[in-house]
Design a protein around this nucleic acid. Sequence first.
DNA 1: CTACGGTGTAATCAGTGATTACATGCAAGA
DNA 2: TCTTGCATGTAATCACTGATTACACCGTAG
Lengths: 226, 226
Amino acid sequence: MAKTSVTKAGDQPKPYHHGNLVGALISATVELIEEHGVEQLSVREVAKRAGVSPGAPFRHFRSKTALLTAVAEQAMDRLTEAVARAVSDVDSTDPAAAFEAIGQGYLEWAMANPTHFQIISSRTLIDFEASSSLRDQNGAIREKMVELLARAQHQGRLAPDVDLDHLVLAARAYVYGLARMAIDGHFPEWHPSEPPAIAVRRALRLFMSQMIVPPRCDLRKPKKSS
Amino acid sequence: MAKTSVTKAGDQPKPYHHGNLVGALISATVELIEEHGVEQLSVREVAKRAGVSPGAPFRHFRSKTALLTAVAEQAMDRLTEAVARAVSDVDSTDPAAAFEAIGQGYLEWAMANPTHFQIISSRTLIDFEASSSLRDQNGAIREKMVELLARAQHQGRLAPDVDLDHLVLAARAYVYGLARMAIDGHFPEWHPSEPPAIAVRRALRLFMSQMIVPPRCDLRKPKKSS
DNA sequence: CTACGGTGTAATCAGTGATTACATGCAAGA
DNA sequence: TCTTGCATGTAATCACTGATTACACCGTAG
């Protein structure tokens, strides 16, 4: 615990070996992106914040992209965990509820961690294909979605002839679009009294009620469910 | 027409004044982004391709961001035109069809011009707020969507208590998500026999049939409509 | 013909990602 | 304990970037 560093100059004689440079670099990267945006990020600034020379990061990450990919992996771990937690909070016998929980968890996390989400979802800043961790976790969520829809379909809550892959694609695109629009600032003109988070949450519910489990034939009946 | 340039060295004595540097710079920018991606873009390369010195572009665009914003404005003009053309091709008395046409036109254009779309939709590469052209055209499309939904609602094809802004947001997020996922390479693992364009097109139709004009109460009846 | 103003050039700046040769100090083996 | 090995960090350096400045060029209005 004596090595989390903070580079308090003048305090310690600045041990030559940092102790945990990799972790410090990743943290510093996230901080700097949150402060000045990902476009402004420079490895030199990351090194400076970690209290280390400009070339030091390249001992651990062969390129800036590799550094950002490491950040993305850490972020993906947290996203996966957040989604899993959201799913575990709902009735496990209700696949549609679990399906919605995935979307909810995903959106909540993305909006609470815009920096991390931005890095994960970019395919130009990071080397997605090179990271089996990223690919695997991404694929796992998709498979989980298909599985849940299959269960819903088996319970008769979905038409038997609906292509699950198509529906999963639609759901992914919807959630992805909502998250990116919110983070990219595409609807700053929304009702001032209503933060994007609420609009996004309601949009997800709208999608679920229409696409996954059609609740009733006509929309005219206002529904005052919980 | 004698000035479209191409910097044929040795041909002409290289007229000191380019003639239409602004246009040439924008074209060169688009070309270079298509070749090496937007991350790799440098103003120097743009200048070189336009056959001009590295500092010349800054006489017309005060910054790299300003150059990209100009590209975005050109792109938005074309997108608006493409959407308008798509709308004009459908029955003008059918607001739902026009609504779908907007989405179709948007998606088709985005997938045919990924570079332009990428620049338009980014809020970090360009200065969106500073360009009234971008803001106006963006807002015009949204207003058109609301208007069409209002007409559909008036025709009884939508529940009278549905919040049109919410529905428009949902539709925008869906289309935006589809376009970005396709362009950002988020589903390269799709059926190899089925290019993303087709998957995206069908996804849009799925959305329309479920969200805008609920065709029937239960999904079980396979529908072989046109 | 001349002065002027818009256009492009050349030189230059600080800052960037990346590489290299070189210091440093921890830890294992004698 | 000494010393050797090696991972870790440093310093110097490279080519390149966005951006600025002073200056050269040239079509044109007077």
